[in-house]
Every structure is written in C-alpha cells, then in structure tokens.
Amino acid sequence: MSNIEFYSAEGLRMDGRRWNELRRFECRTNTHPSSSDGSSYVEQGNSKVICLVNGPMEPENRSQLSTQKATLEVNLNIASFSTTERKKRLKSEKRTQELITTLERTFEQAIVTKIYPRTLISINIHVLSQDGGLLASCTNAVTLALIDAGIAMYDYISAVSAGLFDTTPLLDLNALEENVMSTLTVGIVGKSEKLALLLLEDKVPLDRLESILAISIAGSHRIRDIMDKEVRRHGKVRLSKSSS
C-alpha cells in the first residue's frame, strides 16, 4: 500500500478529503417496519449497516432478566461479502465479540433502562459492506433504530472514528487509512462533549490524544445533526400519515 500518499504535503488525503472532513454520511430510519419495532440503514462512505430493534418485550427465558431494568442483547452479523477479501474468519470472531460488548455497554448507559424492568431489548446489526469505522457506523445505526422503535434514550449517541498520521489528526478513516494508523472511535452524547464510548486500537502518544478527540467530537456533532434531520423528516412523514 506504499503507493499511496495517505496525507500529502498539500493537505489532502488519499480519497481527496482534508484532515477534518467526514465522508458521505447518509441514513434512513424505519427501513424494515414489518419485521421489527425499529429499524435503520446507515451509509458512512462505503460502510453500510442495517440495524433492527425488537422490544421492549417479554423474553422466552425469564430467569436471566433483571427486575430493576431492561436487558440488552446485541447480535452482530458481518456478511462474508462485506470486505473485498473473504478471509480471516477466526481473527474476526474475537473482534466481533469485542464490538458487541462495547455496544452493549454503551447503550446500557444511553437507554433509560430503568423504565423497562423485566424486559428484553434485542438489537440485530447486519454489516453489508465494510470500509473502515465499523464500530462508529454500528453505533449510529443502533441510535437511529432505537429512536425509531420509540425506546426512551437520554440523548443521541453519534460516533465517528479518527486517527493520527504522523502529527496530523485525520477524521473518519476509511479501511485503507485504518490499516496504517492507530484508530480511535468515540461516541458522543447529544450536543455535549460527554463520551459515551471510547475505543482505541493500538497506541497514540498522550500529547496528541487531545487533538484527535477534538476533531472526533466536532465530527460526531455533525453526524448528530444529520441523524436528527432524518429523524425529524421521518417524524413528519409519520405524522402526516396518521393525521390523514
């Protein structure tokens, strides 16, 4: 991959973006109304993720449920055609489990779980295509699907990845960029600067962390705005349907 300038002297990345620019971000909610209580579809560059949410509901096996709050269950299904090279199954299994745990922990804090005791909220994520920022796309898709399902949340969780190339922080890495630099994924609560999620792969020098965090927070806020717009658009469609 050395035949690419990842960040040129002129300040452009391999795909033409500048250091602080997001990739194309598109999203839809309520994409699968018949098969789920809430659903969404997120495209972040060429990463494509579908999320289906069912619940709160009574589960088949009641013994594991908490009497205090709702229980979350995350399934992550990464399609074998989602990367160009279909391989490394074994390695990715460990990684999938890591992602699931991270998502469960994040959304246990974001959902107002205490108002749904003795219920199960089941989140199913399908990754159709991977081009970097997998955890961020999943987080954004889950947020949208939960909102679509009408499950109470404290605020939006919007997520984006960022990395460090030499001394320049780069926002929203694609797969090729992710391969060559340490990657940080953050999830931000609403318009605040509170972190709901932070995952760092490999190491970043401590003195550079702040600059990476700063651009990822700014990026997450922009993603929140796009998701908010979509939620409001869909809300209007629903309202007009129910009122007519």
Partner: peptide, 29 residues
C-alpha cells in the same frame, strides 16, 4: 474494488499572480 473519490472546488493554483485562489484556501490541522 470500490473506493470513494472526493472532488472539491478549493484546490488553489498556487500562483502568486492569481487573484482568485487566495480566497478559497482552507487551513491544515
């Protein structure tokens, strides 16, 4: 292989003679 490719309108010509490009510049990190 599919890769995204972004096209932009803020790439300067970097000629000292140009009256337009100084106004379209964006800063680095």
């Amino acid at each position: 292989i599919v890769r995204e490719h972004y096209l932009r309108d803020d790439i300067p010509c970097l000629s000292k003679l140009c009256n337009l490009c100084p106004s379209i510049m964006k800063p680095d990190a």
